[in-house]
C-alpha cells in the first residue's frame, strides 16, 4: 500500500495539483511529520497509525497547518491523513483554526488490526483513496468494567489513577483540538497551581468537559500520558453520549455545528436526558 501511496503522492506533486505533501517521514528509524517538496524525498514517506501529523505548536498555540497557512496563504498542501487526522482537520476548520480551501486530502484507511490497537471507532477518512473501510472498535473493557461498579468504586478508581498525574499537560499538548489561547487547566481559579498531583478530579474534568463535543478519539492524550492514566476511557464514553443525545459526531462534516453551540431548535436533544 505504501508504494501506491508514494506513487499517488508523486502524481500529485508532479502534476502540480499540490505544491507540497505533508506526511510522515522515516529517518534513522524514527518517524516524524515532514513536508515533502521534492519527488526524490518521497522515498522516505511512511504511514503509521501510531504517529499523528498535527500538533498544536507551543508556545504559539496554533496548529502547524495554521502556521503554514499564515505564512503561505496560497500554497496548495496535499495532506496524507488517516481517519483520526481527517477528523482533526475537519474539527479545526469548523472552529476557524484552519482553512480547508488549500488543503487536498489524501485519505488512507487503517487496517482492522491497527484499529484494534488504537481502540479506534472509525479507522478511515470519509473518502479513503487507499485501503478499505473496516469496522471500528466500539467496546472498551475499561468502560464496561467501570460502568458495572458503584459510585464509590468508580470514584476510588479515578482518584487513584488521577493522583498519579504529574501535571505535564501532555494530554492537552498532544491533543489536536486543544488550541485555546487561555487554557482553563492553567488557571489558578480552577485548579491550584504549582502542585502535583493537581486537584482531583477538577484538573482533568476541565478537559473531559471541554472536549465533549470536539474529541475525535485519536487517543493522543492517553498515549502522551507518562503515568498511563486511561484518559481516553471517559472521553470515549462522552463522545458516545453526545452521539446518543444529539445524533452528532465531531470531525465528520465542516458544516455541521456543535450541539453545545446551538439551540434546542437547531439541534434538539433526546428527551429525558437531564434526569
Amino acid at each position: 500500500m505504501i508504494e501506491k501511496l508514494k506513487k499517488l503522492a508523486k502524481e500529485y506533486l508532479v502534476s502540480g495539483k499540490v505544491e507540497v505533501i505533508f506526511g510522515l517521514r522515516e529517518k534513522d528509524n524514527h518517524l516524524a511529520p515532514h513536508i515533502f517538496t521534492k519527488v526524490e524525498e518521497l522515498d522516505s514517506l511512511v504511514v503509521s497509525p501510531q504517529y499523528p501529523l498535527f500538533y498544536t505548536c507551543r508556545p504559539s498555540k496554533k496548529n502547524i497547518i495554521r502556521l503554514i497557512e499564515e505564512k503561505y496563504p496560497d500554497i496548495k498542501i496535499g495532506v496524507i491523513v488517516k481517519g483520526c487526522e481527517e477528523r482533526a482537520l475537519i474539527e479545526l476548520a469548523k472552529r476557524n483554526q484552519i482553512e480547508m480551501k488549500n488543503i487536498e486530502i489524501l485519505g488512507v484507511a487503517c487496517s482492522r488490526e491497527e484499529a484494534v490497537e488504537c481502540k479506534c471507532p472509525r479507522p478511515y477518512p470519509n473518502h479513503p483513496l487507499l485501503g478499505e473501510k473496516v469496522e471500528g472498535v466500539f467496546e472498551d473493557k475499561n468502560i464496561e468494567g467501570l460502568l458495572n461498579k458503584g459510585w464509590s468504586e468508580r470514584l476510588a478508581f479515578w482518584q487513584s489513577q488521577l493522583s498519579k498525574c504529574i501535571k505535564c499537560y501532555g494530554c492537552r499538548n498532544a491533543c489536536p483540538l486543544c488550541f485555546c489561547q487561555d487554557c482553563a487547566m492553567e488557571q489558578e481559579l480552577w485548579s491550584k497551581i504549582g502542585e502535583i498531583p493537581p486537584e482531583i478530579p477538577m484538573f482533568h474534568f476541565i478537559r473531559f468537559y471541554h472536549l465533549a463535543d470536539r474529541c475525535i478519539e485519536c487517543g493522543e492524550c492517553e498515549k502522551a500520558c507518562p503515568m498511563d492514566i486511561p484518559l481516553l476511557t471517559i472521553s470515549k464514553q462522552v463522545r458516545k453520549d453526545v452521539k446518543e443525545l444529539f445524533n452528532y459526531e465531531s470531525g465528520l462534516d465542516v458544516k455541521q455545528e456543535s450541539p453545545l453551540l446551538t439551540t434546542l431548535d437547531e439541534m434538539p436533544m433526546k428527551e429525558g436526558a437531564n434526569e
Binding site: 459510585w151 468504586e153 478530579p201 453545545l260
Partner: peptide, 29 residues
C-alpha cells in the same frame, strides 16, 4: 435561548460526573 445551552451542558455534565463516580443526582436542573 440561554437555557437551551444550560439544558445541553447539564446533560453532558451529569454524564461525566457519573463516569467519575459522583452521583449525578447531586446536580439538579
Amino acid at each position: 435561548t440561554g437555557n437551551h445551552r444550560t439544558k445541553k451542558r447539564v446533560a453532558i455534565l451529569k454524564k461525566i460526573l457519573s463516569y467519575l463516580g459522583i452521583d449525578p443526582r447531586r446536580v439538579r436542573l
